[in-house]
Write a protein that binds this DNA or RNA. Structure first.
Lengths: 239, 239
DNA sequence: ACCTGCGTCCGACGAAAGAATGATGTGGCG
DNA sequence: CGCCACATCATTCTTTCGTCGGACGCAGGT
C-alpha cells in the first residue's frame, strides 16, 4: 500500500552517504516558534552543514517547498494553523511526493502514529524524544527508510473500514487531493474552479474521479468519508 | 439558551414528591449488558417500585420511547451503536422534548460534560460514580433540576464558534434534526423523503430551513457544521 | 517510433439541489 | 376563538451537480 521506500534516490546524495558533513536541506514546520527553534538547533548539532528552513504555518510550508524545490526532509507538526489533522500530511504527500515527511507531535497514541505512516509519512518523532534517538531516526529516514518509536505496536489497530478508506485516499492524485480538501470546506465547484484557475468542468471531472475512487455517490458522502479519517472514528478510550 | 428547567411537571408527580415509593419509569440505554444490568440494579435499590426498561441500541431506545410514551428519565450512554456522539442526545431531545435525559459516560472531560448540558441533558453521571452520589443526582433531576459532577468547571471552555453553532442547532425542530442527521449520512433528498414517508418537496422545505437556521449555504456545509459539534474541533490537550 | 496509461483539461446534457411562493391541516395557548 | 408554530405538499425557476465523451501532453514499455 505504501509508496515509500526508494526515497533517498531523489536527493542526489545516494542512499548510503549519510554523514554529518553532507549538505542536507531540512524544513521545520511547527507553529510554536520556541519548539521550532529547539528543533532547528538539534538538527544543527547532528548535521553541521545542514540548511534549515522554517515554516510557522501551512501556507508558509507550501510556498517554501514550491520555491526551494525538493528538500531532503520535512519535519511536520500535525497541529499547525491551517492543517486539519492528517489532511495536511495527505496534502503534502500528494503535492510533493518526492519529499520525505517526518511527523513531529506530542500526541503519541499508537492509532495516530499508525495513521501517519499509512498516509505516507517517513517517520514519527514524539516531541519527548532524546537527541540521540532523534539522530538515529533522522538518519534512518535520510537513508530512505522509515522510523517509528520502537515501543509502539503498529501492526493491528485499524478497523477494516478505516484501513480501506486510507487505501482509497492514497490513490488520489495531487490535484484530486486539493479538490477533496476544498470539498471538505463546503466550497462550490465554481469556487474551487476559481481557486485552482481551471474551468468548472474540470473540477467536476476531478470530483467525479474522487467519488469513484472513494466509492461514494455524492460530494457530501465524500466529505463525510474524508472527515472520518481525521477523527479516526474517535478511538474511544475504554468506556 | 436552554429549555431545560420545568421538566418535572410533565411527570404528573409534581415537583416535590420524590421518594422511594413513587412509581417511576426509567430507561437504561447502554450497549454493554453488564453495565446496563448494574445500573438497573442500582436504580432498583434507590427506587423500589421503579419500572426499568432497557435498550441496547439506539433503535431499541427509540422504539421503546415511542411505545411507552413519556418516561421519567432516560439514562443514556453516549457511545452506543447507532449513535454518533452527541447526535443521539440532540436527536433524543428533539424527538422527545418532554423526557429528561441523563448522560452516563466513562468520559469525564469537562468539554464533553459541558456540551452534553448545552444539548439539553438534565445531568451527567460519570460511570465511576458511587451509589450515594448517584441517588442524589437522580433525585435532583427527577425534581426537575439538573446535576453535574461538583468538581468540574462548566463555565468557560467553549470557543465562540462552537457555542454559536450549538445555539443554532437548538433552534431546529424535531423533524429538522432528523433530516439533518440523514444529510449527515449523505442521503439524497429523495431518499430522505422515502425514509420519512413524505414528499421530496417537504424534505426540500426542511433542508432550506436547516440551511437558514445554521447560517450555511449548502447541504454539504450543513453536514460539516454538524460534524464539528461531535468532535468539538478535537480539543487536544497541550501540544 | 509506436502505443498505452494516466493526469489534466474541457463542453454538453440530464438529474438533483435550493429558493420562492402559496396553500392546507394540526395542535397548543392565551 | 384567533394566533402561531410545525409539518405537509405543489409548482416554478435558477443554480449546482455529476456523468459522458473527448481532447491534449507526458511518461513507460515493446
Amino acid at each position: 500500500m505504501n509508496q515509500r521506500a526508494i526515497t533517498g534516490i531523489e536527493t542526489g546524495e545516494g542512499l548510503l552517504a549519510v554523514d554529518a558533513s553532507t549538505h542536507y536541506r531540512f524544513v521545520v514546520a511547527d507553529d510554536h516558534p520556541l519548539f521550532r527553534g529547539a528543533l532547528k538547533e538539534s538538527i544543527h548539532n547532528l548535521f553541521k552543514s545542514a540548511e534549515i528552513f522554517e515554516a510557522g504555518g501551512f501556507d508558509d510550508l507550501q510556498t517554501l517547498l514550491e520555491r526551494e524545490g525538493d528538500v531532503d526532509l520535512v519535519l511536520l507538526d500535525l497541529t499547525m494553523p491551517g492543517v486539519r489533522g492528517f489532511s495536511g500530511l495527505l496534502y503534502l504527500r500528494a503535492q510533493f511526493p518526492g519529499v520525505p515527511v517526518v511527523v513531529v507531535s506530542a500526541n503519541e497514541e499508537p492509532g495516530v502514529i499508525r495513521r501517519c505512516m499509512e498516509f505516507g509519512a517517513s517517520g514519527f518523532l514524539p516531541k519527548t524524544l532524546g537527541v540521540e534517538t532523534m539522530r538515529t531516526a533522522i538518519r534512518s529516514v535520510l537513508e530512505g527508510g522509515v522510523w517509528t518509536p520502537p515501543d509502539v505496536d503498529l501492526s493491528g489497530g485499524a478497523d477494516e473500514a478505516t484501513r480501506d478508506l486510507v487505501n482509497r485516499l492514497s490513490t488520489l492524485t495531487p490535484q484530486q487531493v486539493r479538490v477533496l480538501m476544498m470539498l471538505s470546506e463546503g466550497l462550490l465547484n465554481k469556487q474551487i474552479a476559481f481557486e485552482l484557475k481551471v474551468s468548472e468542468a474540470t473540477v467536476k471531472a476531478h470530483v467525479s474521479a474522487i467519488l469513484q475512487k472513494l466509492g461514494v455517490e455524492s460530494r457530501t458522502q465524500a466529505v463525510i468519508a474524508a472527515s472520518k479519517i481525521e477523527t479516526g472514528q474517535w478511538p474511544r478510550p475504554a468506556n
